[in-house]
């Protein structure tokens, strides 16, 4: 286990630390790890200019401190584990292929941007563009799981192709924007324009949400696939109601603006 403790808060110019990635760190000795480049704006610095580095080289990293302005942690990782005992900055786990990231505090925008595998768990809140496509890209996350305990921002799951996003608290506008597949579970509901222009995929909201005119009522039921989803979620430490005695889902189909075959399931208690 390698432990990096932020020596002083990063309060102004953000720190970019794409080198803090198990794939890179696991193969190095401690001297090389301390010398890895990190960038504070235009200045290239060393890891140990900002972090006290302890433990031994490993594919398990623990980061301590308020890293809300530390960006690109875990970029492109394919194995191992990163634990952040604090907040984390933008682009956490972007392009991730495997492994696990756990954040005890909150995260910022672009968590898991264009990821293709692995698990990211945020105990607190997260920002916008979770699992999303970077601007102009045809697709967002293509697999993997992102679980956020608290609230989330705009455009979560934008253009995602496959994978699972679970948000505990309320999400803001455009959850599931231009979705191509995969599943988004909004345990705390969302604000406006959920599922806008989606072509495929499933959005499940456990609270009532306003819908666009281009989503049409389909039916009220408890889909059988939900049992599978619920089982999967229980293993991940969260859940969706799948017992008809508790409540039912109203199913809407859309977005007809793009002749989409997506669905939004809105739960209401029995």
């Amino acid at each position: 286990m390698l432990t990096l403790t932020l020596k002083e808060p990063v309060e102004r110019v953000p720190l970019e630390t794409e080198m803090l990635c198990p794939d890179i760190v696991a193969g190095l000795d401690m001297g090389a790890i301390r010398a890895l480049p990190v960038h504070l704006g235009k200045r290239q610095c060393r890891v140990d200019d900002f972090f006290a580095v302890e433990g031994e080289a490993s594919d398990e990293l623990e980061l301590r401190g308020d890293l809300r302005k530390v960006r690109w942690i875990g970029r492109g990782m394919s194995r191992g584990r990163i634990t952040v005992a604090g907040n984390a900055g933008m682009h956490l786990g972007a392009y991730m292929k495997g492994g696990t990231i756990e954040v005890a505090g909150s995260a910022s925008d672009w968590v898991g941007g264009e990821m293709s595998g692995g698990l990211i768990r945020i105990a607190g809140n997260a920002g916008g563009q979770i699992g999303a496509a970077y601007r102009g890209s045809r697709r967002g996350m293509s697999d993997g799981t992102i679980i956020v305990g608290g609230s989330a921002g705009l455009e979560i799951g934008m253009r995602m192709k496959r994978g699972l996003i679970v948000i505990g608290g309320p999400a803001r506008d455009f959850a599931g924007l231009e979705m191509k597949g995969g599943t988004i579970i909004l345990r705390g509901g969302a604000e406006l324009r959920t599922g806008a222009w989606m072509s495929r995929g499933t959005i499940i909201s456990l609270a009532p949400i306003p819908l666009l005119p281009s989503f049409l009522y389909s039916s009220v039921y408890v889909p059988s696939f939900l049992r599978v989803v619920a089982q999967h979620l229980r293993r991940l430490g969260t859940s969706v109601p799948d017992d008809p005695a508790e409540g039912t889902y109203t199913r809407y189909l859309g977005d007809t603006a793009v002749i989409g075959k997506g669905e939004i399931l809105v739960w209401s208690p029995a």
Partner: peptide
């Protein structure tokens, strides 16, 4: 939606 002849609510 309407320009494509699609239904709306």
């Amino acid at each position: 939606a309407l320009m494509k002849g699609q239904p709306v609510d």
